[in-house]
Design a protein around this nucleic acid. Structure first.
Lengths: 336, 336
DNA sequence: CTGAAAGCGCTTACAG
DNA sequence: CTGAAAGCGCTTACAG
């Protein structure tokens, strides 16, 4: 790889002049500039962004940690993140860690070591201390979707409200025996949905019915198995709420296998809507999250913090986390 | 952020000693080491990997460019890539560029500038020159799934064979009027599938039937619309082959909307199988790709090339691209 | 065992 | 308009 020095030699001038010419950072004589540009072309020179960042103290890179990308909101959130980051000249380093606390820890430790200026994370919730540590160490940070620390900025939706609205809607459609397929309490979206579901059920004097199966992967297979379990638990079941589209898919399949017609005999709502819902054989009524917007907003907040840390004046003002809550919307389709 | 210098000052020794202690690169007196470790802890020092790479001349990072991640093989391929990269202490920089040639070009140019040691790419096929250029500039490179340049290593599957096998299987199930939903010819997997389809149809003296609609996004909606178009084009249609699961999903939906039963009246096969296929209401018969393995293999090949470039002796031997072809398997499910 | 020095590729005051 | 020099944070021969 050609370096600045090579270019300078060929163009017969100093590296500093080359640097100036290439960055337009001060006037360079047209002739000199022409020679330099020619040399650049001839040597096929490409500046090394990494070393450049050494001086600016910034890498113009944002790290992103999510549990999964395939068949999940995070796939779309990432789209928003990449879009907005690019627009601002930032690269993104994306890492999916599943629900693996240890792996997440490793990734965090790796990213903190000079890879990124900022971090956007939807994590396991188990590394909160480490997150605070990294944040205190001068890396901007924003939590998305999953919320675990009040002292760090966040972008998410009101999951309690989502749970409540989905349940209310299902009740308004005549369901009385409604089962919830969800995930572990210690992850905020699951907890929120559960609370909202409980509130709605209570207001309507209905009985709570939840399942939980041992599994780390809460996707399609999980939805399928939980739906079967619910069917076992309550023969009068007339509604199934799932946390995600993946689970909804699995539930629809389980119902089909059991010869139960949707929505006639059973209604289904997914609480994390997604492109796929409207293309299923039985389209899935769901709460659609503004995934792209979540991603974009998270980048914006993160960049603000980065700018703030760079600016000596601003730095004096104490850091105040920003918490943004976006709205989900009910998409009525065939399943309920 | 604390630097080496800060640690050295606090531990009362030279930066070089600190460096040695931290990297275990030569013996350091236990007392000194203890002091250093203490200082590291007190200052919460974390080495700056980026500047370190300045010396090693390596960033231990692999860039990945794919067209999309959500609802696509690439989502799973990425899993394999991240897994294998991590195992070898490499970070991955993932970028999805859709079918946007210009965006892809920008991303490539950005990545080449010191971000990565190697590049794994499934691209638009429109930036082949640039790819060769980057490769020649000393960045290891492997093409995956989409193949566009013989001089660069590759990992993919035999799409022609996939198209052929899928078609043959469908014919063996009694289909005679088989339509193909695919994508543009200039992208190798689409081309391969088309050729295989044609070969099988020809061998059986059947008529070719393909659709193409104007669209950049060849996902669920595209599958849906193309299926409708096929239905229009041939009222005797009894089989639909789709390039991807996303398209398969859309096709199944379109058939449902038209009151056509699968597989009784119409058979459907997707030629890029995926987790989702087995959880649909009508499970989707498909050619399953070894996505994870594709990702892992690509990383392995890329790392070999990186190692090779680092090693002065090996460098002398001329670069020879490696081309690996993996096998797809037919998963028989309900739709055919 | 550990300093002092040079260097990785680049940027940026400082002179002139 | 453009050199020469210092420095970003770290590593690594070279002495001692």
């Amino acid at each position: 790889m050609a370096t600045l020095k090579d270019v300078a030699r060929l163009a017969n001038c100093d590296v500093s002049t080359v640097s100036r010419a290439l960055n337009n950072t001060s006037y360079v004589h047209p002739d000199t500039k022409a020679r330099i540009l020619e040399a650049v072309k001839e040597l096929n020179y490409h500046p090394n962004v990494i070393t450049r960042s050494l001086h600016q103290g910034k890498r113009r890179t944002i790290g992103v940690i999510v549990p999964k990308i395939q068949l999940s909101v995070f796939g779309d959130v990432i789209l928003g993140i990449q879009q907005e980051a690019r627009k601002n000249g930032y690269a993104t380093l994306i890492s999916s860690c599943g629900e693996d606390e240890k792996l997440e820890k490793d990734e965090l430790n790796r990213l903190r070591e000079g890879f990124v200026d900022g971090l956007i994370i939807a994590g396991t919730g188990k590394n909160t201390r480490l997150l605070r540590d990294i944040h205190a160490g001068g890396i901007a940070m924003t939590q998305i979707v999953r919320f675990s620390d009040n002292s760090i900025s966040s972008v998410d939706v009101d999951y309690e409200l989502i749970g409540y609205q989905a349940t209310q809607y299902m009740i308004s459609k005549g369901c009385r025996q409604i089962g919830l397929i969800n995930g572990p309490d210690y992850i905020s979206p699951y907890k929120g949905r559960l609370l909202g579901y409980k509130r709605a059920m209570k207001e309507n004097d209905l009985d709570i019915l939840t399942v939980e199966l041992p599994s780390v992967n809460r996707g399609t297979g999980y939805g399928h198995d939980c739906a079967e379990k619910l069917l076992d638990m309550n023969s009068m079941l007339d509604g199934i709420l799932t946390a995600t589209d993946g689970q909804g898919l699995g539930a629809l399949r389980a119902l089909k296998e059991n010869g139960i017609r949707v929505p006639e005999q059973m209604k289904v709502i997914s609480m994390t809507g997604h492109e796929i819902g409207k293309m299923l054989e039985t389209t899935l009524t769901s709460m659609e999250l503004p995934a792209i917007e979540i991603g974009e907003t998270a980048v914006r907040i993160t960049l603000e913090e980065i700018t703030c840390m760079n600016d000596a004046n601003l730095r004096k003002t104490r850091y105040k986390p920003k918490h943004v809550t976006l709205e989900a919307t009910l998409e009525k389709r065939e399943s309920c």
